[in-house]
């Protein structure tokens, strides 16, 4: 009885299914269209981009890419990519190590005031960065660290990204307690327990931390703009801003081409680590 019912329901929904797919695909194309337009425009000759409304180029050319890659003031776009990657790599290392140390303390060690500090840490998630911006800038300026990457990287070696601390804490709390007992019986110290047992088990959370460190640092514009003003230190974001200012309207092709290049690393991450971004691994842990 139930089986036949479900079959009729299935038939009834076949038309509904088709409508669903058509609508969803149409809306997806509508949403993604600007990005696709930027992609195809980057292969158009500079003069064609705003003249014709056609989606595909009449003549395909890489001239925007070669022109854009030349960069600014003798520094090729590759230099800016390298700078961005350098900052991102350091930020990742800092976040992974210090946030996981802190998370281990919150999740696995009992110490006085731990829940107080945990509440403070949650509070810092809600602070606007502006509240500490100006004194930090003044101090870095006094220390002569403006135009270096230190202001962008140093805070990450002090677990200032509360979001990752929180995420890893929740993850470590979810690990089986038997692990802790076992290593206590084996006479492991706390550090050994962290390094040998907990950290390897936390790998999924570490990967998520790396992914979000990458995305946020790659897309960051404000702090990079404030701290970096010499062209040789420019990151991808700053270089693109410079392209807008320097090139005017006739060079949108090069700007589009380099914009596409700047989005590629994000796309690779998305393709390679889709599971970590899409399955709510991160956010699922937040519910806790």
């Amino acid at each position: 009885m139930q089986k036949t019912a479900s079959i009729t329901i299935r038939r009834k929904f076949r038309v509904g299914n088709l409508v669903f797919h058509v609508l969803v695909i149409a809306f997806a194309l509508f949403m993604i269209y600007p990005l696709l337009w930027m992609l195809t425009s980057s292969f158009k000759p500079g003069t064609e981009i705003f003249k014709s409304a056609s989606f595909l180029p009449e003549t395909w050319t890489l001239e925007s890419y070669t022109y854009g890659w030349e960069g600014i003031s003798g520094y090729s776009f590759g230099v800016f990519l390298g700078n961005s990657l350098f900052v991102v790599a350091l930020v990742m290392v800092g976040n992974v190590f210090t946030c996981s140390l802190t998370a281990f303390a919150f999740a696995k060690i009992r110490f006085p005031l731990s829940s107080f500090w945990f509440a403070i840490m949650l509070g810092t998630l809600m602070l606007p960065f502006h509240a500490r911006l100006i004194p930090q800038y003044i101090i870095y300026n006094d220390l002569g660290w403006v135009n270096t990457y230190i202001p962008l990287v140093l805070p990450k070696f002090f677990a200032t990204e509360g979001f990752f601390v929180f995420m890893m804490t929740q993850y470590m709390r979810g690990l089986p307690r038997e692990m802790d007992e076992a290593s206590r019986i084996d006479g492991c110290g706390f550090f050994m327990h962290y390094w040998r047992i907990i950290l390897p088990l936390t790998v999924p959370s570490i990967i998520t931390t790396c992914i979000f460190s990458f995305i946020w640092t790659w897309n960051d514009f404000f702090s990079q703009m404030i701290y970096l003003s010499k062209i040789e230190t420019y990151t991808v974001a700053l270089a693109l801003r410079q392209y807008v200012d320097a090139m005017g309207n006739s060079y949108w092709g090069a700007l589009f081409a380099m914009s596409i290049v700047s989005l590629m690393p994000l796309l690779f991450i998305f393709i390679g680590f889709q599971r970590f971004l899409m399955d709510g691994v991160t956010m699922g842990s937040i519910k806790g």
Binding site: T98, L101, T102, F104, A105, I109, R110, F111, P112, S114, W117, I120, M121, T124, L127, A131, R132, P135, Q136, I139, P155, F157, F158, A159, T160, V165, G189, F190, Y194
Partner: peptide, 23 residues
């Protein structure tokens, strides 16, 4: 255990005061 806890927390505590509360 308490000492270990604070030892693990040291980077975060330094960051909290140095990069957030004092600024």
């Amino acid at each position: 255990e308490a000492c270990a806890g604070y030892l693990f927390m040291t980077p975060w505590l330094l960051g909290l005061f140095g990069f957030t509360l004092i600024p």
